[in-house]
Design a protein around this nucleic acid. Structure first.
Lengths: 185, 185
DNA sequence: CCTTTACTGAAACGACTGTTTCAGTAGACT
DNA sequence: AGTCTACTGAAACAGTCGTTTCAGTAAAGG
């Protein structure tokens, strides 16, 4: 046996990184051990040894995705006002090189709603709170933590994410960007 | 053999309806023939006979979902202005009894982005256009079909959908509804 | 009555799933 | 040298998957 430790080994983070790259292009829904292992130069045996189970691996992948999301969000900490932060967020969201990552994010989001238990538990809710946190931090302190302030953040979050899933489906950067900027200007 | 006909038989629509109910509570990602067949009082054999393949069944389910979406949207045809239509749409979206349907919708949406070929092809894009159509129809004719008009519809669509996926994850009707109404009032 | 059409049941096929068993190898520590 | 830890390969296990084969029933039309 082997419990995936709190301090992962070097090989573990190495394989997790490779698996993450793989998931970015292949999605999480159809992820299975043998093709993944072959693609990243490993074996199902090793993946199970390091992550305990497939659920453990998926959990690690989800955590990995959320980590890189959080470090990204940390870069947007509120020196400017809410609209500016939101606009810079949209710049990041609409960048073509982040398409795969965000599709993966949406997939995890949807999955965690369908299957609230198991590996996906709480992923959607967690990311709502992560993003709301960043937006809230960009608000002036006198508005923050009021009903009005939370509604404002929720609206901006909705705008960004709604425009994002529109963009992911249509690829229409011009239309979605105009819509976002139109509201935030 | 058996090609699923353009004019489905009585038994076919009956089973499709039952399968749709099943999908609403179990999701599409983990749908498999044997459990589904058992639950709706049928057999894998019959489902394959009627729908040709599992892909055919999923396609039929997706089409079924889109159909009921379209007949819903038809009920919101523009007698009032855009904000009123959007508010009534949000009323429908935030109703607790539609939670399962909308989760299914989001699942199909995400899946069609990850796997753009096969049964899911074009689902996400199609629903974007469906919704945008309704919102556009609610605009005054002089704004319609201008860049500005399309940006406005896109923004409202983003708001509604962003608030929807927030609601689906958190269940927080109060916060999300306030956010939507705050923008549309 | 006979044929055709629509549907159904039981069982099997091959491919794939996550996981386990057993057997190692390579390097670091004592 | 010997032991311990970390990791790995090959093969098998039991289960599920979509699909096919072969069989049969029941009703409708001529």
């Amino acid at each position: 046996m082997h419990q995936p430790s709190a301090t992962p080994s070097a090989r573990e983070v190495e394989l997790l990184e490779a698996a993450y790259e793989y998931a970015l292009t292949h999605g999480l829904a159809e992820l299975s051990l043998r093709p993944l292992a072959k693609a990243i130069g490993s074996s199902p045996r090793v993946l199970l040894y390091l992550f305990g189970s497939k659920d453990g691996l998926v959990r690690a992948l989800l955590a990995r995705a959320r980590t890189s999301e959080l470090t990204l969000l940390a870069g947007f900490q509120a020196d400017q006002g809410l609209p500016q932060v939101a606009l810079r967020l949209w710049e990041w969201l609409s960048a073509p090189e982040h398409r795969a990552l965000l599709t993966l994010w949406l997939e995890g989001y949807a999955r965690s709603l369908v299957e609230p238990d198991g590996a996906w538990a709480g992923f959607a809710r967690a990311t709502v709170e992560d993003w709301l946190g960043v937006l809230t931090a960009a608000q002036p302190p006198d508005v923050r933590d009021t009903d009005n302030g939370r509604a404002q953040c929720t609206e901006i979050l909705a705008l960004l994410r709604g425009a994002l899933i529109d963009l992911l489906a249509t690829g229409d950067v011009a239309r979605t960007s105009t819509a976002v900027q139109r509201r935030l200007a």
